[in-house]
């Protein structure tokens, strides 16, 4: 009976110790978080380093075009490519992994490729295209996908509902 009591006391003390340690660690983490929140620049630098270490992956942006006239795939690809080139230059185009992949003239939907680091910039650039020749257009980003098949699937899905 005594042995059981001793073992129980030992177990209890060990668990108490572990809990105590956990609380200390938590407190330290909280202090660190508070400290870092006072220095946003350090946090930004750290997040940039983490971002730089992340692997570059492809992202496929599905977009929809609203326009007052019929658009051909060639016209749109020419306009988008020239806009990207104008804003980012050849090096920028290579860095963001831009490629105009597909445009369905019936559904007015298309796919543009970019990377996980720059797809938001790419969406921003799509927003700058407002006119092609005399046609006014509005490009709306619908979704971002990890694979081309999923992007095609999305377009098919939206096509059925239309």
């Amino acid at each position: 009976m005594e042995y059981i009591l001793i073992a129980f006391a030992l177990l209890a003390s060990i668990t108490l110790l572990l809990l105590f340690k956990l609380i200390i660690v938590e407190k330290k983490v909280n202090v660190l978080v508070k400290l870092l929140s006072n220095y946003p620049r350090i946090v930004e630098r750290l997040s940039k380093r983490i971002e730089a270490k992340r692997k570059v992956r492809k992202r496929y942006i599905v977009f929809e075009v609203i326009s007052n006239c019929k658009l051909s795939s060639e016209e749109l690809s020419r306009e988008v490519s020239s806009k990207v080139m104008e804003l980012l230059g050849r090096r920028g185009v290579a860095e963001i992994g831009y490629r105009f992949l597909f445009f369905d003239e019936k559904l007015n939907m298309g796919i543009v490729r970019s990377t996980n680091r720059a797809y938001k910039l790419m969406i921003g650039i799509l927003g700058l295209i407002r006119k092609i020749d005399d046609c006014s257009i509005l490009i709306i980003p619908v979704s971002v996908h990890t694979t081309l098949n999923k992007a095609y699937e999305k377009i098919r899905e939206l096509g059925k509902t239309k």
Partner: peptide, 18 residues
């Protein structure tokens, strides 16, 4: 001032990042 001048929220964020 018309439909074709509207911006999607993600496009707004992207432009500011640009």
């Amino acid at each position: 001032s018309n439909v074709y001048n509207l911006w999607h929220p993600l496009q707004m964020i992207g432009f500011l990042m640009l």
